[in-house]
Structures are given as C-alpha cells and as structure tokens.
Nucleic acid binder design. Structure first.
Length: 593
RNA sequence: CGGGGCGUAGCGCAGCCUGGUAGCGCAUCUGGUUUGGGACCAGAGGGUCGGGUGUUCGAAUCACCCCGCCCCGACCA
C-alpha cells in the first residue's frame, strides 16, 4: 500500500481564497493548499501533505548527515534548569527561553537548542581521546519564545530543527569537521534545487569563533546579505565588512552654527545645503552584558551610514546594545537632537570610515546648534576608531575592491565552530594521548527543517500554487479520473495499481468533481506530474500525461506507466548530475577563503 | 514593549459612521440536471457578531476594560 491514496479519503482542506492574515507567499500557499493550520501564535499543525514533505526533507538531511559520518540520536524537549545554570546561559538567553516549574517546583525549560543537554550527555561518557571526534545529531522540535513570530513557518515559536554537535580533541579536528559540515550543507541545499548562498555570519547568542549561515535567496527573507559582485565574499550585514570612500570636507576651524529645531541628519543637510555624507551621526547606546554591562557609549558614523548594532556590541564587548533614553543622553552631557562627539563623558566610538575626516558637521551638544569644520583627529582626541557601519549596496569589497550587492535571504542553516564555549563550563573533558586531562572542543550545525519547507515554497511556486521538486512532493503523481464511466474507473484503477507496484507515490483523484476543480486542486497542492484518464482519450485507448503547468500529451494506456517511469528517471538523473557538480565547486571556493 | 489595522457562519467579506435584534459570495447537506479547466436550478443547515462591563426602552453598531490576530517599528538625535 505504499503511497496508496484516494483523494476522497484524504485530509486536504484546500481554500479558495487566500487567508486574510497571511502575508508572504509560502504562508498563503501552505494554508490554502491544506498543508498547515495555526494552533496559536507561531505554532502550527502539520497536516498530512506537509508531514509527507517534511519527512522527505528530513530523509535527504539524514542521508547526507549519515554519509558525513554523523550519528542520529534524540534528545528531550524539556530540559532541566540546572544545565542552563551550568553553561551560564540561564540569564543570558533571555525571554526566548520558555521557563516553567514542574510540580516539584523544579526549574525547567523548553529546549530552544541542545548544547547543554548534549554536553551533559557527552561529558558523562567521554573518557579518552580515542572516542573522538564524534558528531551527534537529531531532528526534533524546538521552542523559542520569539518576540514576533511571523510569516507562518518562516519564524515560528515551535519549529522542527536538525541540530548536530561535534566534539573534538583539538582545533584541527574541529576545523576538518566544520569543513565537512559546510560541504554537507552545500550538498543538502543543492539537492533541494535551491538558489542559496553560504555567508559569513555573526555567532550571536550561541557564541564561538567562526560561523557561516546558509541563506535561500528570496524577497521575503528577513536577513540582508552582502556579497561581492565578482569574488566569493559574502556575509550577513550583521557582520559584513566593506569599504566606501568618505566624502571629504574642506579642513576648517571649528565653528558653531545655529540650527533651530533642525535635528535629523537629513534636515540638517538640507538646512545647511551640504551633502548628507558630510554630517556625523552620533548615537548614544546603553550596553548590555559583558564587562561593562549597563555602561553608556556614543557611536559615530557618517550621515549616510547606519550603525550596525551587532558590530558595535562586539567592539564594546557586550551581548547587545540598546538606544539610550533621553535622560541617559542628558546624563552624559548630550542634548537630544543635537548630540555630537565632543565633550561627552563616555567612550566615543567612531566608525573607521571617518578616520582622518575633516570639515564635518556634527551636533554641538547644545540646543539648536551644530558644529562645522569638525576634524576628529584634532577635535575628538579620545575617539576610538572601529568598524561600526552597516554595509550597503554600492560599497566596495574589502577583499577585491569590486562592487558589493545586497540580497534578501532566508536563513535555513548555520554552522558554528564553538571552541570551548560550552565544553569548558559543562566540563566535557577527556584524557589525551599524553594522559593529561583535556577539554573537548566543539562545533554545532543547524538546519531549520520546517523553515526550509517554507523557503522551498517561496522559491517553487507560480500563480496556480506550489510547484514542488519531484524529490520533495508529497505525491509524485496526481492521477485524475474524468467522468464516472466504468471504462474510466477501470483504467484509472489499473494505472493506480501499476504505479503503486512501481513504488511511485500517487494521489488518485476519484472524486465526483468537475475536471476544473481537480486540476485547480492539484496545481494548488503542487504535485509535479499529472495523469489524466477520461472517456475522450480512452476512445483512442490513450491517457494524457504531463508535468504540472505544461502541455499534456497522449500515450497509450498500456505504455503510460512505463513512459512516466522513464520521464522520472530522466528528471532525476539530470538533477543529480547538476548537484554533484555544483557541490564540489561551491565547496572549494567558499571554505578555503 | 510602541504605533497602525483587524476580530461578524468553515473561508473571504458587507452591515457599525447615523442603535431597532444579522446579510452576501464560496464551502457544507438534500433533490435534480450537468461533467475536459473552480457548473446550474430548487431547498436546507450553520452565527454566544472575540470576551466582559457600562449607556439605552433597545447594542454587531456607542463608551470603557480585557483577550486574540496581522503588519510596521522597537535605531539614525
């Protein structure tokens, strides 16, 4: 009975209209085509069609992870608070970690990720370097209490993730596994036929040293990625480094200028009739976490740039930064609306693009006043220069000097070289070759499985609905019976059986519906191939076959299944050839740089 | 957390401004006619109008509170 399904017995609640509360295409289509239903904010039911696709995605991931030498296990969703205390993340992780007490008042949480649990497990069993390296992974539900779940499966609170954790005796071994996982991910996303890009990434709350994200390119993506138009450089804008020449002002003496009620850089530039790039934006932040938790700092960038807060946080050794309040600004000697870098009683970080800049305009820290002729070297001797600005389109690549472009991406995977961030506090130790106690070094590697399903829909759809790749479709074939004649029923039944015997997944639409309804439904749910059985064709002893949204052609009833199988074979072998070639090419160029 | 929008039948919506006891399309059910691209006719079922409090003779409609959903923002002084 493999794949045997009659439409009239299937739970496929399709909708004629787009649901009003869905915004992005994948959310709309997955709802309309009967794949998902919302249970509560950011939490969804996966209906039978969705589960079939999810299982196929997982199968590819498992296959590639296993091939890469990782072993699957399964860890719990509920985790004890002590582990998070031990890793020092109980406080740090913040409100995204859903905490609760069980009936014995035991502090617990729902796992947003599993570094703690896996480290706890491995620390208990690891004794010798001979057990290393090892890579353990699972496919499991995660819960993160997101500020704003949105876009359906794209940013849910509960979601399916493949997470892998590797343990090593030394940094070289970790580097090798990192590369191995990078290649594995490239292979996986290539097999899905996705247009994607690996990019350098910030390590975020997970911590560690080195990280790449894998982004599926899509307009609806929540991330911005910067990439060079010529070389391989690509990075999340949270991390991207690029160059742009600084607009240069004439060196001049420092002077005050009246700017009554003119505060924003745009307005000041207009008011003074100067290029916005000649202004200095001074932003005041309060920093959170790290050595200077709670301190206030000022950050300056050119008027046409934006402060990249994640970069700023790194520069000041904080976990995050937050815009200061008006009171904070006053307390450090600033005047809201007219803050400038001079005479502030806090650290002043200045974007390196402004190093050596002269003739700039900045707030004067005095009401309705700006200064002109600012020269950082001369007038702000305490300034500390660092890369603080966010890369924008048209910047120059810091590697090759060519133009930087920006794209939107959906982050579907990330690999981290964690080092000893977790193994140290969690005491994952072993005896090394010299018989000495040694702390293991660690990597972790995630793929958002449910998000990946949404990302695939974002790339694989048209006006009629979803257009699944053959390898991921919930059923490969939609078998449509037209009319109620015995001839149609018998021929359909026979073909249905032959397909099942051949191991093909087929959804047989034997409903008493008009043809238009059936075609629309199949196109909406996205089955890649159709076989149409009708009286018209049977008169000539023929049925029609064809790929979704393409012209169908007539083939004899007797040959139908054979012809379909050979079409599938061709399609599959074409895909594989492409994927092998692309994998090796992408791998070499990306990891080595 | 801030701003905006929304909440009326399974889905999409109207009605609300100007208070008088709920309607349209699709879907569903019954009967009939249809059957190669979301059929037609006739009939039927289905709604505590998100919840509460208040105003009023009377509330989907007005007021207040709460809940939920969606979008934007949570930064550019």
């Amino acid at each position: 009975m493999l794949g045997a399904m009659r439409y009239s017995n299937c739970f496929i609640p399709t909708l004629r209209d787009d649901p009003a509360d869905a915004e992005v295409i994948s959310h709309k289509l997955l709802l309309r085509a009967g794949y998902i239903r919302r249970v509560t904010s950011g939490v969804y039911d996966y209906l039978p069609l969705a589960l079939r696709v999810l299982r196929k995605i997982e199968a590819v991931i498992r296959e590639e992870m296993n091939r890469a030498g990782a072993q699957e296990l399964l860890m719990p969703m509920v985790q004890p608070g002590e582990l998070w205390e031990k890793s020092e993340r109980m406080e740090k992780y913040g409100p995204e970690l859903l905490r609760f007490k069980d009936r014995h008042s035991h502090e617990s949480c729902l796992g947003p990720t599993h570094e703690e649990v896996i480290c706890d497990l491995v620390s208990r069993e690891l004794r010798s370097y001979k057990q290393l390296p090892m890579n353990l992974y699972q496919v499991q539900s995660k819960f993160r209490d997101e500020i704003r779940p949105r876009f359906g499966l794209m940013r849910g609170r509960e979601f399916v993730m493949k997470d892998a954790y590797s343990f090593h005796a030394d940094a070289e071994s970790l580097a090798a596994e990192y590369k191995n996982m990078f290649e594995t991910y490239t292979r996986i996303f290539t097999r899905f036929g996705l247009e994607f890009r690996p990019v350098e990434a910030d390590t975020g709350s997970i911590g560690g040293s080195d990280s790449h994200e894998f982004h599926v390119l899509a307009e609806s993506g929540e991330d911005l990625i910067a990439h060079c138009s010529v070389c391989d450089y690509a990075a999340n804008v949270e991390k991207a480094v690029s160059r742009r020449a600084c607009v240069s002002g004439e060196p001049a003496a420092l002077a005050m200028v009246e700017t009554p009620a003119v505060t924003s850089v745009e307005d000041v530039a207009d008011f003074l009739s100067v290029d916005i790039g000649l202004l200095v934006k001074t932003l005041v932040y309060r920093i959170h976490g790290g050595e200077h938790d709670g301190a206030i700092v000022a950050a300056c960038v050119a008027g046409d740039d934006q402060v990249q807060e994640i970069k700023l946080a790194h520069v000041v050794g904080a976990d995050s930064v937050e815009m200061a309040t008006d009171d904070d600004i006053v307390s450090i000697g600033g005047v809201t609306g007219f803050v400038g870098p001079q005479q502030l009683s806090v650290r002043v970080l200045v974007d390196s693009r402004l190093q050596g800049a002269t003739g700039f305009i900045a707030g004067a820290n005095r009401r309705d006043t700006h200064v002109t002729g600012l020269d950082f070297g001369r007038d702000v001797p305490a300034a500390e220069f660092a890369d603080l600005r966010e890369t924008r389109a048209g910047d120059r690549c810091s590697r090759c000097g060519n133009e930087i472009e920006l794209s939107r991406g959906i982050e579907v995977g990330q690999v981290f070289a964690l080092g000893k961030r977790y193994t140290e506090p969690m005491e994952v130790v072993f005896q090394n070759q010299q018989g000495k106690r040694s702390v293991a070094t660690m990597g972790c590697y995630g793929i958002g499985v449910s998000r990946l399903m949404a990302a695939i829909v974002e790339q694989c759809n048209d006006a009629a609905g979803i257009s699944w790749p053959l390898a991921l479709a919930p059923f490969q074939i939609g078998l449509i019976s037209m009319g109620k004649s015995n001839a149609v029923r018998d021929a359909s039944e026979a073909i249905h059986q032959q397909l099942l015997d051949a191991g093909i997944e087929v959804l047989w639409d034997e409903r008493n519906e008009r043809p238009g309804v059936k075609f629309k439904d199949f196109e909406l749910i996205g089955l890649p191939f159709q076989i149409v059985v009708g009286d018209r064709g049977l008169k000539e002893d023929a049925v029609e076959i064809g790929w979704r949204q393409q012209q169908r052609r007539a083939v004899s009833v007797a040959d139908a299944v054979k012809v379909v199988l050979s079409e599938f074979e061709q399609a599959t072998s074409a895909e594989t050839t492409v994927s092998e070639a692309t994998v090796s090419e992408a791998t070499v160029s990306e990891v080595t740089n």
